[in-house]
């Protein structure tokens, strides 16, 4: 049996999870929620993580019913993400690894999402759509790498949603994306927005500028409601994502799609992807907010795979990095 504890805090969630051979023993998490109209800044987010990380660590051990001696490896997010929050989490991971005499393992956050999605859904070799506040990538595995077939050329899809939420002062509790999703259900009028698929890549910054402008003009004149804009934004963004995912599937001859990342728990995105999959005779795999949204168990799971394949990270090499592409990691645990 191999037990791995995973520390995640690359954005506004601080999570610590424990995995024992594919079983999630615990996975507590806290979210830094900012007032409507405001995003989360690195230093404030790091302060939030510092305030909660030791309590969350205690919870993770207690809920798993484990002592430090039962743990085989300490995994943490090496990157990508915001620098200050990443350092905060890495500091605690390094310290407990030394206190408990356990090996340390730096994990790529994106790989964490993919491996957690594979574990929970049992998808074998899916085309992966990774969509969150910081990342938008279509990924397929080949020859020991998770290869990026398409990605955003500017901001992430979740960042586009979050920033639109800020413009019209939608609550960030539990998350701006969740509240947009609920409001979109009440939208009835489709407001046409730019549709910006560029080959295998997507672009969201122009759509954001356009809808920010439209929001100011159309809401004040009563031409549409905030709900209509939420609906229109989701339909446009998600259509683009489904299009590039389908193209990657056609290219790879894949019959499986796995959606991971925080935006992946949006049921409308899952529904639209499901329609495309059904038309192609393919299977859709997705997870709920426990595992889609950043959490510690996903880092533990990727760490478990890496550790079992013989990897560890020496302390002097355990620096964090804000930029760390999915395809930089050699996948030593898959054929």
């Amino acid at each position: 049996m191999t037990v791995v504890i995973g520390f995640e805090g690359s954005a506004n969630k601080i999570g610590i999870g424990i995995i024992r051979d594919g079983e999630v023993l615990s996975n507590p998490r806290r979210t830094y929620i900012t007032p409507p109209g405001q995003g989360f800044l690195p230093s404030d987010t790091a302060r939030h993580h510092r305030a909660f990380i030791l309590t969350v660590l205690k919870e993770a051990l207690e809920q798993a019913g484990l002592k430090p001696a039962d743990i085989d490896c300490v995994a943490y997010t090496k990157g990508p993400g915001m620098g200050a929050p990443l350092v905060t989490v890495a500091l605690v991971a390094r310290t407990v690894a030394q206190l408990w005499g356990k090996p340390l393992l730096g994990v790529n956050h994106c790989i964490g999402h993919i491996e957690m999605g594979r574990l929970i859904t049992k998808a074998n070799n899916p085309t992966v759509l990774y969509v969150s506040g910081g990342n938008t990538q279509v990924i397929a595995y080949s020859e020991r790498r998770y290869r990026i077939f398409g990605e955003t050329i500017d901001i992430a899809v979740g960042n586009c949603l979050d920033r639109f939420a800020r413009v019209i002062k939608i609550s960030n509790d539990p998350s701006p994306g969740y509240n947009i999703e609920q409001m979109a259900k009440k939208g009835s009028q489709y407001v046409e927005l730019p549709y910006t698929v560029k080959g295998m890549d997507v672009s969201f910054s122009g759509i954001l500028s356009y809808i920010e402008d439209a929001a100011h003009k159309m809401l004040s004149s009563g031409q549409c409601t905030a709900e209509d804009l939420c609906f229109s934004l989701q339909e446009t963004l998600f259509s683009m994502l489904v299009e590039i995912t389908e193209r990657a599937m056609a290219h790879c001859g894949s019959q499986e799609v796995l959606i991971v990342g925080g935006v992946g728990c949006n049921l409308r995105l899952q529904e639209m992807m499901g329609v495309m999959c059904k038309e192609r005779g393919a299977k859709l795999f997705a997870t709920d907010e426990r595992f889609c949204i950043d959490n510690g168990a996903m880092i533990a799971q990727a760490g478990w795979e890496m550790f079992r394949s013989g990897q560890v990270t020496e302390l002097e090499d355990s620096w964090i990095t804000q930029r760390y592409r999915t395809d930089e990691v050699e996948v030593t645990w898959r054929d």
Partner: peptide
């Protein structure tokens, strides 16, 4: 201070 707090709560070292 975070490292020292961690050592107080989860130490002493084995």
């Amino acid at each position: 201070s975070l490292v020292m707090e961690t050592m107080e709560m989860f130490g002493p070292p084995v």
